[in-house]
Design a protein around this nucleic acid. Sequence first.
DNA 1: AAACCCACCAACCGCGCGGTC
DNA 2: GGACCGCGCGGTTGGTGGGTT
Length: 304
Amino acid sequence: MGRPPCCDKEGVNKGPWTPEEDVVLVSYVQEHGSGNWRAVPARTGLLRCSKSCRLRWTNYLRPGIRRGNFSDSEERLIVHLQALLGNRWAAIASYLPDRTDNDIKNFWNTHLKKKLLADAQRGGNALSSSSSSSSSSSPSPPAPALIKGQWERNLQTDIDLARRALRDALSVYGADAAAPAAVPLPPLWSPASSASAAYALSARNISSMLDGWAPAPATPIAAESASATSSEPTECSVSSACASNNNNKPVLGPSTSACENDATPVPPLSQIESWLLLDDSSELQLAHEDDNNLLDVALRDYAS
DNA sequence: AAACCCACCAACCGCGCGGTC
DNA sequence: GGACCGCGCGGTTGGTGGGTT
């Protein structure tokens, strides 16, 4: 039996979103928080399927995302991660919290793939060392037949490989790689490229509308009661759950799930580097001593 | 100025996974 | 245990704008 379509085609708009639709969606998420996308079309009156709403939010309207103009360091990080992880864009995007998986995927398909091909044809093989170990295809997931111990060892190997590759990627910062505190972060906002359309600007304006709104309360009920008592927009404080969650706690999982409403880009590289630069032995020790240790988090996330 | 080509990227589509009943 | 549902992910497509002829 075939899978039913995710949304009925009748009465559902497709194609580019209009600013008006964006405003409706943003207003809804502002009030109720992201999640329960199924309810969004019904509760907002948007003639869009839930999937389309979620995509529009996560890829475009969500605050804290940066668009266009990938820096060299980002580029190299993506190349290394792609070599390690394959086309797992969400996983790669988790290392670039202010980039969406869709953006990275597009950047890869339109720029990096061609660039690497051109490099390969020129005989330039700077990246082959990292890509050769895992080949260009996606890494094979843990085989079900693997016993737990084997699987965990494989996982540890994967993590070690990832660390080395990240170390390589981050070495684009030069000798400063040894001094994480001095590592410059990519610019938060680059000027719009020449290709930026007027609507992109308006969409950015919508995003800027979100500057200053706090993540919705955890429960829709709470949100509703809050909005019932006051129709005023919530006071901005990017604090609450998200800020505390990002409080120097490295996040390995997809950034969208880690903190979808976070309007404040976190400095991911410095966190990653502090992890990378841990000496292996001390790292193992820390993994047992500190539940917030990144490796420990990684292991738990991976295993769960 | 018009036609054509190409690059970019927003959005769609289908599938897989996890949770719930 | 299995069916159903909702969400997330990756691959792909189609519209648009810029560049070239």
